[in-house]
Amino acid sequence: MDKIINSPYNINAVARVDSDNIVHNHIYHYCPIGRVDDNNFIYDNNNNVVGRVDDDGIVHNHSINNSPIGKVLENGFVIKENALVGRVDGDNLLLAGAAYLLLIQGNR
């Protein structure tokens, strides 16, 4: 089953993680844009670790000194700098694809 990452206020998919943990970006149609491993580490297309989601839902950006940049809440909403930036729709609310949404958000 595909995991869909939605914007917080509607049902339009902006990205998804497929059953092989490959991240697809629906905004730019640069697919695939990365992948997620079983430990919620996020890799870019060059196989570099760019971030992760820890067990508490904290999103870390490995490009900026492993800094926390947001959080995936228990209800699936994703926050960054105290603002809603997305929503995870799927079985795994700590899905690292939500972190990828945070990591690419500055490029919109």
Score class of each variant (00 low, 15 high):
Leu94Trp: 06
His26Tyr: 13
Val50Gly: 00
Val14Cys: 08
Cys31Tyr: 07
Asp56Ala: 13
Lys80Val: 14
Gln105Met: 01
Gly70His: 02
Gly51Phe: 02
Ile33Pro: 03
Tyr9Trp: 14
Ala13Val: 12
Arg35Ser: 07
Ile5Ser: 00
Leu102Arg: 00
Ala98Asn: 06
Asp38Leu: 10
Asn12Ile: 12
Arg52Glu: 15
Lys71Val: 11
Ile79Pro: 12
Asp2Ala: 10
Asp38Trp: 07
Arg87Met: 01
Leu94Gln: 08
Leu94Ser: 06
Asn65His: 14
Asn39Trp: 05
Asp44His: 03
Val53Tyr: 07
Gly90Arg: 02
Val17Ala: 03
Asn66Arg: 09
Ile79Asp: 15
Asp37Lys: 02
Asn12Val: 12
Glu81Ile: 11
His29Leu: 05
Asp89Lys: 08
Asp56Leu: 11
Gly76Ile: 11
Val50Ile: 15
Val17Pro: 06
Ile58Thr: 15
Leu93Asp: 00
Val23Asp: 02
Arg108Gln: 00
Asn39Lys: 11
Gly90Tyr: 01
Lys71Ala: 03
Ile5Trp: 01
Leu103Tyr: 00
Ile79Leu: 08
Asn45Gly: 06
Ile69Lys: 00
Lys80Ile: 06
Gly106Met: 06
Phe41His: 15
Asn25Leu: 03
Asp37Pro: 04
Tyr43Gln: 13
Tyr100Ser: 02
Asn47His: 13
Leu94Met: 11
Asp20Leu: 07
Arg87Asn: 00
Asn61Ser: 13
Gln105Arg: 00
Gly97Lys: 01
Gly57Phe: 13
Asn47Asp: 15
Lys3Cys: 12
Ala13Asn: 08
Gly90Thr: 01
Arg16Asn: 14
Ile42Tyr: 00
Ile27His: 14
Ile79Phe: 09
Asn40Val: 03
Ile11Gln: 14
Val50Gln: 01
Ile104Gln: 00
Asp54Tyr: 13
Asp91Tyr: 10
Phe41Ser: 10
His29Gly: 10
Ile33Lys: 03
Val53Trp: 04
Phe41Pro: 09
Ile4Asp: 04
Val78Asn: 02
Gly70Asn: 06
Val78Glu: 04
Val23Pro: 08
Asp55His: 11
Leu93Arg: 03
Asn46Lys: 14
Ser7Arg: 10
Asn65Phe: 13
Val72Glu: 07
Ser19Trp: 11
Tyr9Thr: 14
Ala15Pro: 07
Asp91Gln: 12
Asn66Asp: 15
Ser7Pro: 07
Asn40Thr: 02
Ile33Asp: 02
Arg16Pro: 05
His26Ala: 15
Ala15Arg: 09
Tyr30Ser: 08
Asn6Pro: 07
His62Ala: 06
Asn12Phe: 08
Arg16Phe: 14
Ala13Met: 10
